[in-house]
Amino acid sequence: MQIKTIDGDLAVCEIDGVQREASLMLLADPVAVGDFVLIHAGFAISKLDEEDAQATIDLFRRILAEGGGVE
């Protein structure tokens, strides 16, 4: 979910237009409004590493490009 607002240890997060409060108390990574976080049972537990996600997606694209005949 994406962080919309942060108030101390509490963030309001949104996914597909649905908003939910999440505690930031367990999160080790520093976060800011606009970051994506993984939420479990009302607590943010990890921040999505966007660079890393992009690297995996790039790898998939390369795999596809090398595929030649695969539609």
């Binding site: 367990l26 999160l27 080790a28 537990i45 990890s46 999505l48 590493d49 890393d52 996600a53 995996t56």
Partner: peptide, 15 residues
């Protein structure tokens, strides 16, 4: 790796 850090989440582990 986009979610799992090499060190995990030390703050959650401490709590």
């Amino acid at each position: 790796s986009r979610i799992v850090r090499p060190e995990g989440n030390p703050r959650a582990r401490d709590i």
